[in-house]
Amino acid sequence: MRTALVIGTGLIGTSAALALAGRGVTVHLTDHDPARARTAAALGAGTDEIPEAPVDLAVVAVPPAHVPATLAEAMRAGVARGYLDVASVKGGPRRELEALGVDMSTYIGTHPMSGKERSGPLAATADLFEGRPWVLTPTRETDTEVLNLALELVALCRAVPVVMDADAHDRAVALVSHTPQLISSMVAARLADADETAVRLCGQGIRDVTRIAASDPTMWIDILSANPGPVADVLAGVAADLDETVRALRALQSSDEDKRRDGASGVEDVLRRGNAGRERVPGKHGAAPAVYETVAVLISDRPGELARIFADAGSAGVNIEDVRIEHATGQQAGLVQLMVDPSAAPVLAAALRERGWALRQ
């Protein structure tokens, strides 16, 4: 691949353009808002000049509702040898594109499983896709050359290709992406009118659950409107669990010992099923999730403190597998939770104490 055209310079389009441009591909940028394309170009993602000849690959990075029309327009204009989109829904847009009567052999649907709560070109980074799954949904009609261009794009973005059927993909993302977004938003909505005293008690748990609730509602309306059925199916299952859990909790309030026992059993059931589901979430490098031990360190809110603690861990020969930061309410300090291999935890704790860090149990 020597040349590419990125249509849509939001987070995903600009990030892909940055990755391609950084690896020597000449990238042309276009957007319905020319200012966004100019911003992406200024960031080093390519040029906002129109290509003089057909490019090797056109990457359509627009909301799902606009994918079919945008692709059809580009394909009829012959702007590229191959075409793909990066929308988070695959089945519906493909069927709409087929109905428009274009040459489907030059097209492949794709979806990089990566993103941020922020949108727009200024949120983009060249490493957004590194190590992340990038779904490809080829059909019998897909030309081998187009599939190879898509695979080359994935490789240049340092992502991991995953081949799926389009409708299977939509059911999968309903479960692992779209429903979590709605549930996170529902939990966060409970905080909107909550008493300030309660909000001040927020800890890492509520921050973890509500992190993605900060996402752009307009973007998510576009996504959910393109995949409503599978999301509704998953939510129906969640709703059934909620009903059962509410009944179990009400039973725990009963003065009847048998009802309380049944209530406790119902709550335990959903918690244990949650344990079993969580164990299936892939861990580092896609392997089964490892069990890490946490070393908690008190840290002040001063520039360079995180860098210093990571450097001290590195000097001790300990690899930090994950990290969480919990800020202390109303104070210029916080708690850094360093997740490490259990065998490395005593080594790290001793090294950090020796360097003057205050550890917490």
Rank of each mutant, 00 (worst) to 15 (best):
V135K: 04
L136F: 07
T137W: 03
T137V: 11
P138N: 09
T139I: 10
R140M: 03
E141T: 14
E141D: 15
D143N: 12
E145D: 14
V146R: 01
A150Q: 07
L151R: 15
E152G: 03
V160L: 07
V160E: 11
V162T: 09
M164V: 02
R171S: 08
A172M: 11
H178E: 04
H178R: 06
P180W: 06
P180L: 05
Q181G: 03
Q181A: 09
S184A: 15
S184Q: 12
S184I: 13
S185C: 09
M186I: 12
A188G: 08
L191E: 07
L191N: 06
A192F: 01
D193W: 10
D195M: 02
R200G: 00
C202E: 14
G203Q: 15
G203M: 12
I206C: 05
R207W: 09
V209L: 15
R211L: 12
I212L: 12
I212N: 07
A213G: 03
D216Q: 04
D216R: 06
P217S: 01
T218L: 10
M219T: 11
D222F: 00
D222P: 02
D222Y: 02
D222K: 00
I223A: 00
S225Y: 06
N227E: 04
G229Y: 02
P230I: 03
D233A: 10
A236P: 00
V238T: 10
A239K: 13
A239M: 13
A239F: 02
A240Y: 06
D241F: 08
L242S: 08
E244P: 02
T245Y: 07
V246A: 14
A248M: 08
Q253S: 12
D256H: 06
